[in-house]
Design a protein around this nucleic acid. Structure first.
Lengths: 336, 336
DNA sequence: CTGAAAGCGCTTACAG
DNA sequence: CTGAAAGCGCTTACAG
């Protein structure tokens, strides 16, 4: 069963390839009778246009890549969903690429040794430095996502992590909490995301007139609830006695919830807890999580707009856009 | 900055396109000096082969699609991760397509009105019937995932849902539980997945000599922890008094945990709870979830093997393969 | 409003 | 071991 080509349709309908193409793309200025004849030939043969031919001819693949650490981390899966949806609305398919949070994979993603797969890349790096990013993927447009430092030449969309962290600390301080710990800080070197959240945490403490106490910083692996549970558990057993926890993300918060419960500490009565990302399951755990929520749809919209402008030829300096966030208050750290 | 083509490399190296192609693909039988000269030209020009040209010429896109309901459901995100990894090992990229669990989108996925995007499709349908599936996607090979009924002509990989559900019930019965409820059954019409799990649930009860009590079936929306919490909560408030819960999936189990805790019921002392899928977060909640775990890597391996055989021209009847599963015992329904 | 020709970037027999 | 030619399936100016 050989594939049916556009020329087969043209032959059957008795028109030129160009006319078939016009009908397929719904161009105006095709005589109605001609259009009907072509459409009938298409239906009769079961013709389905081949995107490779089109792509080679137009130079566009109508496919975008989204590169990020790991699909198994709920925040990224949910982000991918939103971006795929937004891309679809703009006529683009979305190809997901997982870096595994590995520096060399991130580098490989940017230096893509094959061309013609996607028209542009949305990239959320963890480890790549600004300089490395500057030498990007052939000449495919790239827009950076997340709280990294972006080179001057590259577009970048993110939320204000520092402000969000300050907000979290202020919320906890307003609840009367004084010994506000941070869980987990990556060890030994924090990612840019972690760094900004830590800065905001410290800034928030200072703004509230609370002492910054290094013994309240819990180090540990990020992106893993069980690791957070273990790290916090060890800290608690070693005598740390916080009355609130700023968790780096909701996964850490979930692990923290376990560690606290296992030690008979009540949330929020004894220890208030906040998460970050507001993943779907934040409302499913008990107590439900107070969390920082980025405006995902807005993030997707802005990032895509910037990327499509690049694809359309915009060649100016990198744009840096800040997307809104909010503190969603739930049981784990209720309002006053 | 026009793209560099293979012919540019050929010209610079002073060889034919064929030779460049040979070098790019690492074919043997290219003189070493020639290879070196070509490689130097490639590096010098920064040549990156264009996959569309290759794809058009070979007929292969080296891309596969994975179609399923929703990336935001942890089980699917984790499945996608495993399959993407396995596909990568075989030299294929994976394109994700979300159906949103909508029948018409599922149909559109299978009848794909564009050709040349992927070489084959891994498809986990929710609503499509066997007959509808039989008329599939142009002539692209399809392998079905999950517990649906597959047409005789289509390959199919799944776990034994009925046996797994029986196993769950037997585990709970061995703990001495007698009033084992099921959460949630889709209302009004269950998906094939739900149907099989319900059958196994009933079969398990009968095997254990326990009465099948329709009042212990909680109906509700699937794939949403909060919906499960509300549905179970309403049932409990209406007087249902189970001593164990077979939850349709881990999300339902998480919702159930909340509903129980909110009513002062202890898990597992008062009510034992089991989930299904063994998502990563199953170990993060408290109590951790006893859950059915499909062998995901095996599932990915078998499904991909079948699909690649089809792509290579195998044209026999549909193969149906059953992949292993296990009951992972944790706190929510411990061993005896 | 429609047609004929060239080209997008590769690979694949077929010669040599 | 390497070359020249044709073809994969589309679209895009350019004519008419």
């Amino acid at each position: 069963m050989a594939n049916i080509r556009l020329s087969d349709v043209a032959k059957l309908a008795g028109v030129s390839p160009k006319t078939v193409s016009n009908v397929v793309h719904g161009y105006a200025h095709v005589r109605d009778t001609t259009r009907a004849r072509v459409q009938q030939a298409i239906d009769e043969l079961g013709y389905r246009p081949d995107v490779r031919g089109r792509s080679l001819a137009t130079g566009r693949t109508m496919m975008l890549a989204l590169a990020f650490p790991d699909l198994r981390i709920p925040y990224f899966a949910e982000l991918a969903h939103v971006i795929a949806e937004a891309a679809g609305e703009r006529g683009y398919r979305l190809l997901l690429e997982e870096s595994g949070g590995a520096r060399e994979v991130e580098r490989a993603i940017l230096s893509a040794d094959e061309a013609g797969i996607v028209d542009g890349v949305l990239f959320q790096p963890v480890w790549l430095t600004s300089t490395e990013i500057a030498q990007h993927r052939g000449d495919i447009p790239v827009v950076l996502l997340g709280e990294n430092t972006a080179p001057l030449t590259v577009d970048h969309v993110h939320i204000d992590n520092i402000a969000a962290a300050v907000q979290v600390v202020e919320h906890l301080a307003a609840l009367g909490r004084r010994r506000i710990a941070y869980v987990c800080a990556e060890h030994p070197r924090p990612s840019e995301t972690s760094r900004l959240r830590l800065i905001g945490y410290q800034q928030g403490l200072e703004a509230c007139g609370l002492p910054v106490d290094p013994s309240l910083i819990v180090s540990g692996t990020v992106g893993n609830a069980d690791a957070a549970r273990d790290a916090l558990g060890a800290a608690l057993d070693a005598g740390m006695a916080p009355d609130a926890l700023v968790c780096r993300d909701d996964l850490a918060a979930m692990g923290a919830l376990r560690a606290l419960a296992e030690r008979g500490l009540r949330v929020p009565e004894d220890v208030a807890v906040t998460g970050w990302d507001d993943i779907t399951l934040a409302t499913a755990v008990r107590p439900s999580l107070t969390s920082i929520r980025a405006d995902g749809r807005e993030l997707a919209r802005r990032a895509l707009d910037l990327l499509l402008e690049r694809i359309d030829g915009f060649d100016g300096l990198g744009r840096h856009e800040v997307v809104g966030h909010s503190l969603v208050v739930r049981e784990s750290a209720p309002g006053v």
